[in-house]
Computed example of a mutant assay.
Amino acid sequence: MNRDILLQVIDLARWAPSGDNTQPWRFSIVGEQHLRVHGHDTRDEVLYDYEGRASHIAHGALLETLRVVASSFGLATHWTVEADSEARSPVYDVHFSAQSDMSTDPLFPYIEKRVVQRRPMRTTALTPTQRAAIQASAGDELEVQFFESFSERLEVASLLWHNARIRLTCPEAFAVHRKVIEWRARFSEDRIPEQAVGVDPLTARLMEWVMQSWERVRFFNRYLLGTVAPRVQLDFLPAVFCAAHLLLRPARAPTELEDWVRLGISLQRLWLTVTKEGLHLQPELTPVIFRWYARDNRRFSSAPALFEDAQRLSHVFERLAQCGPDEPFFFFCRVGVAAAPWSRSLRLPRERLMR
């Protein structure tokens, strides 16, 4: 094994998913069989990265992607992590070892094909084979709860409709939304390109203009029903038009950094499996995140009513999932059959990810 192989591994592994394409990692090569991943989180800038959890999940997805890529070179991986009590900047040491009997992981061809599909999908039901593959990919640490019938999808659509009002009227979320979209773009190396967001061109132009300032957003929301078009196009219709929604529930509540990282490993394996099965996936994570805030009694906004709304929606979510307030939720998404998106997030060039 040599440095060139490590660089090839990094080049493919950087396609791991991360919230809003933040890519919260940088790489350094320590030795011919030793890669160091310098993780960071975005909790101080991003409302949705509660206690760094979203970033830590992304770190796990990266580690799993490294493992899958390494298998194509006949290499096994072993990782350890060091972090302080807050785990804002965890450092992962990944060691590679040659295995003569190592075969390429069957998920390897799907690393770059895995994308987010934010537009409505077909309502074609999951096949028993697809369902079984998704459940098997989650492993023993996760329970996969399916919401597949029309009435269940309609209930989820209602949940997402009300949840989107919190998201779109929260001043602390505005800075995130304004920063994360690359307007008038088909591809983006470090954000979400406008054409992958999932709204029509007229709505996109209006959003671009309105999101120049919070004052404009507040005016449109209050007097001109400014949240209606994006909620219909980004939340309600996609929630109805899909095969199923999946709620991933950990077998035990995650408490430590490594718990969240291992959940991220499971998530990436499930997402790659979804892709292998000819399906697309869209994360629907904000209801889970607002539930984290509500159940931890952490106020996330200067607008007190939004926290109360989050508490109410947490009850709605729990009734839908038929569980209690102390049972952990990890990830929520929808899946279905659709044409491949013609617009997508790319990744920073490998050179910009090296330290």
Rank of each mutant, 00 (worst) to 15 (best):
T104E: 08
A305L: 13
T104P: 04
V37M: 10
D49T: 06
F236L: 15
S213P: 00
S137E: 03
E194S: 08
A253F: 09
T286Y: 01
G264H: 01
S151G: 11
G198E: 03
L234Y: 09
T286D: 06
P325T: 04
V316N: 11
A338T: 05
A243L: 02
D235Y: 06
L281A: 14
L160K: 01
Y92K: 04
M207D: 10
L237M: 14
E318R: 06
A340H: 13
F317V: 01
S137D: 05
A310D: 13
L142F: 03
W15K: 04
N297S: 08
A70K: 05
E277W: 06
D11R: 13
S149L: 05
E82I: 07
E182T: 08
P349W: 07
F96R: 12
S158E: 11
K276V: 04
I111T: 02
I5G: 08
A125M: 12
H95W: 05
L62H: 00
E155P: 12
E64F: 06
V316A: 14
I57C: 03
E152L: 00
V180F: 09
A87S: 15
S158C: 11
I57M: 05
R119E: 10
G139L: 02
D326W: 10
F73Y: 09
S28G: 10
R122G: 15
E155M: 15
L263N: 10
E32T: 11
M1L: 12
D93K: 06
V68Y: 00
R114V: 04
K179M: 11
Y50P: 02
L348N: 10
D105A: 07
L346H: 00
Q268E: 15
H95D: 09
E141V: 12
E277N: 07
H56M: 15
L306H: 05
P250R: 00
W214M: 00
S28N: 01
L107W: 13
L257H: 15
F329H: 09
I5Q: 14
L75H: 12
A244E: 07
R184P: 00
A303Q: 14
L285A: 11
E308Y: 14
F146Q: 03
L62F: 06
H40A: 12
L142R: 07
R252C: 03
V46N: 06
L35N: 08
S158V: 13
D84P: 02
E32I: 02
D200A: 09
I192V: 05
L313R: 03
R131H: 15
L234H: 00
A175Y: 14
A303W: 14
G264A: 08
P24G: 08
G74D: 13
Q8H: 13
Q23G: 13
F73Q: 10
